[in-house]
């Protein structure tokens, strides 16, 4: 049972990691918590759902994920263009980002409510049998797929940020945007890049969450809270910290639910966050401690 719970926890943590990184990446470059990410995840879950359902013959899941990520990029850039770009241009206070991103998330959820009601829609069955056995552990195929897709995406992302020129430029902008300009880094390009990556992450996590929990308007917002908590525990803006915290949160949640039942799980996640804020307010990574929204 222990291994079973551990595996489920890791798989859950992997999705939280995608959300947390989507959060952390925008925070590290632009220094604000992008709550619109939750709304984006919900839209992407719907897009993935209808793509999977209407396109004939039914596309394999990776095609759906790819298509949804592209839609995620487009929406993310659109959002930046109509909302955040003007805040940047006017050099408005950070609170403006916070308020508008929260508002956008609420608007998106409300619109989805109007069109699709609150009833969850179930993704078509992806696998003919839902589980397989390894030794005496019964493993869900869905969870395995989610784990693999998430880990692959996280590895690609870490490679992009740690090893490529664009990634180095993104890190430079996150540390010191003014001096980055003197290196010849075009900050607008880096911002577009950041929102594109956040869009991809929203797209992939939307499809994966939709597969796991069904598609409903609040999906993104409820999950985003987990991702946000993970990125706070990890140290806002730190990708490595956010990923570590997300896995930790996923595993704790699984064990807690097994022992205490699912009703008290949301309480537990916030308690973990509060504990971290008391004991280690700078987060696991210990960077970017001061600016939290």
């Amino acid at each position: 049972m222990f291994l079973q719970l551990l595996f489920n926890g890791i798989s859950l943590g992997a999705v939280y990691a995608l959300i947390a990184v989507g959060f952390a990446i925008v925070f590290s470059v632009l220094k604000f918590s992008n709550f619109a990410h939750g709304g984006m995840i919900s839209i992407c879950a719907y897009i993935g759902f209808f793509f999977q359902k209407t396109v004939k013959p039914t596309p394999p899941i990776w095609v759906t994920i790819l298509f949804t990520s592209l839609c995620g990029i487009v929406m993310s850039l659109f959002l930046d263009r109509i909302v955040y770009a003007s805040i940047r241009r006017n050099k408005s206070p950070k609170n403006y980002y916070f308020l508008s991103s929260l508002t956008i998330s609420i608007i998106i959820t409300a619109i989805l409510n109007v069109f699709f009601s609150k009833n969850p829609l179930a993704y078509p069955m992806l696998f003919s049998s839902t589980t397989f056995n390894v030794g005496n552990i019964r493993i869900s195929r869905m969870d395995t797929m989610i784990l693999i897709v998430s880990v692959v995406l996280l590895v690609l992302l870490i490679f992009l940020i740690d090893k490529t020129k664009v990634g180095l430029a993104m890190r430079a902008v996150s540390i010191d945007p003014e001096t980055s300009k003197l290196m010849g880094i075009n900050s607008n390009f880096i911002i577009l890049m950041t929102f594109s990556l956040a869009g991809i992450l929203a797209g992939v996590s939307g499809v994966l969450l939709g597969c796991k929990y069904g598609v409903f308007p609040d999906l993104g917002q409820s999950m985003m809270i987990k991702g946000f908590i993970a990125s706070v525990i990890g140290g806002l803006g730190s990708l490595g910290g956010a990923i570590a915290a997300a896995f930790l949160l996923g595993i704790i949640e699984m064990f807690w639910t097994y022992v205490m039942g699912s009703l008290s799980t949301p309480v537990m996640t916030f308690v973990v966050m509060l504990l971290f804020l008391f004991i280690r307010p700078q987060g696991i990574s210990g960077r970017f401690a001061k600016e939290k929204v």
């Binding site: 020129k165 180095l168 430029a169 890190r171 430079a172 290196m183 010849g184 880094i185």
Partner: peptide, 9 residues
């Protein structure tokens, strides 16, 4: 990495 950023352009 700092030096590499100098050669960004």
């Amino acid at each position: 990495e700092n030096l590499k950023l100098g050669a960004y352009s």
